[in-house]
Design a protein around this nucleic acid. Structure first.
Lengths: 153, 153
DNA sequence: CAATACTTGACTCAAACAGTCGGGATTCTA
DNA sequence: TAGAATCCCGACTGTTTGAGTCAAGTATTG
């Protein structure tokens, strides 16, 4: 699994929304400025996250984005799977994006068996971390601040 | 970490050499045929593995390749690092290919701390598996065969 | 209505991937 | 010592992916 720039931006944006989770929305512009993400590019990304059901949007003057589900209901595994495709290093051990490889018998392929372990290791970490967990880590790492927007992500 | 076609071919080739490890060499052509790898492409790959010190070659009529070190001295982590670059999902948690990212304080970055765990999980598996281990897995998975060349990889 | 924000689709530019190819250098064997 | 087998090396090509950019459109609010 390799996290692209796009993927990193997405995580950062979701984390900002997680830290400010509530009934209100946050503008793209603010996220972009705070996180130093090209605005146009971020638009594209959030749009994608929207059609995938991770966030919802409100148009018009007081518009913006917010998480669709609660921060504790979104795992990093889900997010990254959507953004980057398979978490597994090779298609033939991917559960969600399985692709048969050329070896004659997958059950007897030693390379595959190692890659299986790698996949399980990656998934093990990423399934266990939600956006809410991430937010907690931010707070743990940075101590409590007055303004939630001051959290560095 | 994502394994490219090139990387998979390399692992398969090394595994063939591991299974047939001894004083003699194996021809590119044989590996290519047995493993269904485009010969010219494999040449390129083995050349690369040679200059990286994983294999050695012999030219001329009875020429070919063999592992330079013992199969137990080559870990998958080393091989993949050479072929694919960082094992870590992001540069800022890579030990061997570290690259600073744009966040203001790495020590306080929650995303980074998760990616750190992912990296450790991946490296943990891959550092622990050598070519020799892979060979043992092949034998375990397939039972003992008469002709070592019959092992499916 | 005007200003503000999100929406959509197309577009560019560079790098990475997966090979392919031609010819050169060595080594063995007859 | 010629010739066949084998590795060696650099250049080339076509496709895909990544990272943005841009223009014009639609909805919302004051």
């Amino acid at each position: 699994m390799k996290l692209s720039q796009r993927g990193e931006y997405a995580l950062r944006a979701l984390l900002v929304m997680g830290m400010n989770h509530g009934p209100g929305v946050i503008r793209i512009k603010d996220i972009a400025q705070q996180q130093n993400i090209p605005r146009r590019f971020l638009e594209q990304i959030l749009n994608d996250l929207k059609s995938a059901g991770f966030v919802q949007s409100k148009r018009g003057v007081a518009g913006g984005y917010r998480l669709q589900r609660g921060p504790d209901e979104i795992s990093l595994a889900d997010i990254i799977r959507h953004l980057e495709g398979p978490l597994a290093p090779v298609g033939c051990v991917s559960v969600n994006y399985y692709q048969r490889c050329s070896c004659p018998d997958e059950g007897k392929c030693a390379i595959r068996s190692v890659m299986q372990e790698v996949r399980d290791a990656i998934v093990g970490v990423l399934e266990g971390v939600s956006v809410a967990h991430l937010c907690n880590r931010v707070r743990d790492l940075q101590g409590p601040l007055e303004n939630p927007l001051d959290y560095v992500i």
